[in-house]
Nucleic acid binder design. Structure first.
Length: 409
DNA sequence: CGTCCACGTCTAC
DNA sequence: TAGACCTGGACGG
């Protein structure tokens, strides 16, 4: 679940599921977790959640019932406690009956009812973390979704920092400035802005002001100022509130929140909606490269001047739908067909010294055919070319480009 | 079976 | 700028 939208959706989930629920007793940590114990226990308490960028904060609030003295005597806490979570690559919250505890439920809050229910922080890979009595991590910037004005000012006033000398696709993952943006969002944001991923961030951001027409306050203000304001420009402004990069860092993640599903969560019954929403990340026909941190960047067209000259594009696999997925929240369960998104394979070849033949012979062979030919592709480029050709098999048949054929609904 | 890949930080050389 | 930290799913042999 882990980019800004998923963290926020997780906070909504907790608030919805735990509304009116009384919890009781200590907070239990799994044996295997290396995260800190949570020194909190109460006869009766409630749980609420809030999110900021890529963090979620749970607030445990004791309900006044007995005399304070009695509670103290029983070793109970009488003041609220905040616990700040980071989800790593696989964290999420789940509220279940006690006998349906998910595997990897590393921190658990038990309800007071008879057959009790449990709010669990589930995290298979255990890259997630929590901090009892925690605060929003000071080194992280304002939330791109819900503190837009501050987020924008923070970036605009620091564009001359060394951090912005890096390629824009890498800077977008810097949580000091882009709290909430992750790997799929950076791809979707850059794709929509038509900015090559490996252009210096400074270059694309300098010149942007602290305000833009994205403010709800006067949406069309800037627009009217624009001298020319060709019909086309006007149309773009109105359609996309303004599509400068910083604005997209706000609107794109909010689109995911508004899809109403769970965001990036292949096991979810709503995953097809998210999949259909993606325009670049994991989309057939897009190119991929490893950035300087080894992360895969998905993009279309020109990689930009700062592209790693050595990186190979990783080969992705498909996304298969977990058939089983019993997902509460259901509501809609139509469309059950196979969702597997076919992955293309390498795009950019990466220069690599062609002089020395030899290496990866088989590899080069296949690359030969469906390869590159378009290091350019400035932008327009309708996603039509059946570039996929690729290996004999596949055939990609028809220009299915848009994997995920908008099933039902 | 083994290899590669994944929504992210962290800290250590 | 590398690893380290983890589990599990897809794919290849």
């Amino acid at each position: 679940m882990p980019e800004g939208p998923e963290l926020h959706l997780a906070s909504l989930y907790v608030n919805r599921m735990c509304e009116g629920v009384l919890f009781s007793g200590p907070v239990i940590k799994s044996e295997v977790s290396k995260n800190p114990d949570v020194p909190f226990t109460s006869e009766a308490y409630c749980i609420t959640a809030a999110s900021r960028g890529k963090e979620v904060k749970l607030t445990l609030t004791p309900i006044k019932t007995d005399e304070p003295k009695q509670r103290v005597k029983a070793g109970q806490v009488e003041h609220p406690m905040d616990i700040v979570f980071r989800f790593g690559m696989s964290g999420y919250f789940r509220f279940t009956s006690e006998d349906e505890l998910p595997k990897h439920a590393h921190l658990r809050f038990y309800s007071k009812e008879k057959p009790c229910r449990v709010l669990s922080f589930v995290d298979p890979r255990r890259f997630g973390s929590w901090e009892p009595n925690g605060t929003w991590q000071p080194s992280r910037g304002p939330c791109v979704m819900f503190e837009y004005k501050k987020f924008r000012e923070n970036v605009v006033t620091h564009v001359s920092d060394r951090a912005f000398d890096r390629p824009i696709c890498e800077v977008l993952l810097n949580q000091k400035y882009f709290n909430g943006i992750g790997n799929y969002l950076r791809a979707e944001i850059l794709f929509r802005s038509n900015i090559p991923p490996f252009v210096a961030a400074k270059t694309v951001l300098e010149g942007l002001g602290p305000d833009d027409s994205c403010q709800n306050e006067n949406p069309m203000k800037n627009e009217s100022d624009t001298k020319k304001t060709s019909v086309r420009t006007k149309k773009k402004l109105m359609t996309h509130q303004t599509d400068d990069l910083l604005s997209l860092c706000h609107t794109v993640p909010l689109e995911v929140v508004n899809l109403g599903g769970k965001g990036y969560d292949p096991a979810s019954g709503d995953f097809s909606d998210f999949e259909a929403w993606l325009q670049c990340y994991y989309v057939d026909g897009m190119k991929t490269l490893r950035d300087h941190n080894g992360r895969t960047i998905w993009f279309r067209g020109d990689p930009g001047p700062m592209a790693p000259k050595d990186s190979k594009s990783p080969k992705a696999k498909k996304w298969a739908k977990k058939d089983d997925d019993h997902d509460y929240t259901n509501k809609k369960k139509g469309a059950r067909e196979r969702k597997t998104r076919i992955k293309q394979e390498g795009g950019m070849k990466t220069p690599k010294k062609e002089k020395d033949a030899g290496l990866e012979e088989a590899e080069s062979k296949r690359r030969k055919l469906g390869e590159t030919h378009e290091v350019n592709t400035p932008q327009r480029e309708t996603r039509s070319n059946a570039r996929r050709r690729k290996t004999s098999s596949v055939g990609v048949t028809a220009g299915s480009q848009r994997r995920t054929m908008r099933t039902t609904r």
